[in-house]
Amino acid sequence: MWTLVRQESFKLTRRVSTWVSTAFLVGIEIVFAFLSRVYPQTFVPANMFESLYFSRPIINFYMIAATATIITMEFQYGTMKQVLYRRYSRGQVLVSKWLAIFFYTFYWYVMSTGIALLMKALLFRHTLSIHQGAGDGMSIFTRGLAISAASFVSLWLLLSVVFLLANLFRNSAAAVSVGIIGYFASNIVTQLLTILIQKWDWAKWNPVTMTLYPSMLSHPGYYQPLLRMQGWQMLLGNVIYIAIFLGIGYYVFNKRNV
């Protein structure tokens, strides 16, 4: 099993896009850190740090693309058969891809947090204290971590859908577009969603609501009454939906002709 995860990671590290996108993300963080230093009124240093200098949306796009391609590239290059006709079971092959993507998500979050801390140390040594309180008994730093954790979880909700679609369609364009639409959908339909939830309480348990988990944490007190959800309910909902989508994907992958 770990051999397979190592092989998937090896393929990731050998792709030029991995390194180009890493450089791009670092660049973005540096640019926004400088903007925040020069225009602190527009780009408020505390908020900018909390948002990891704008890296989370970029990480989301990268991960949607990486998840779609880790499956579809095998079909595109005709390598899926070679990957499968070894002693490893189909389930192991798929789970190794999940794990590789899981660690890859981790890589992005750790890296962007590291860069954010570095930027803070270099540019805001005296002007920003990340340990100052930011409401809810959290400091700027811990709030940033909490939002990261929440967006990690709801990103995985999207990724579990992308895994499923990539398996069904073998086509990264379809999987990526649905992933990105999914990413924006939550913000677009929030209003409609709140109307529905005010009318029928059970409607809050739909998967789109769950993707608002990080927004809920970064705007404390705003979404909670609208969605009638507690943080732990959101977390639970996310985890359940992730399990459902991954489970369907697993079933489909095991059944398919390659």
């Binding site: 050998r14 792709r15 095998e74 005709g78 899926m80 058969k81 006709y85 002693r87 079971s89």
Partner: peptide, 23 residues
């Protein structure tokens, strides 16, 4: 399709080779 540990004894090339262009 689900379980095939004995394929460790087998090597194969079917139709055309699957090749990762970036490796």
């Amino acid at each position: 399709p689900q379980k095939h540990e004995s394929l460790s004894k087998v090597g194969a090339l079917i139709e055309y080779p699957g090749i990762y262009p970036f490796l």
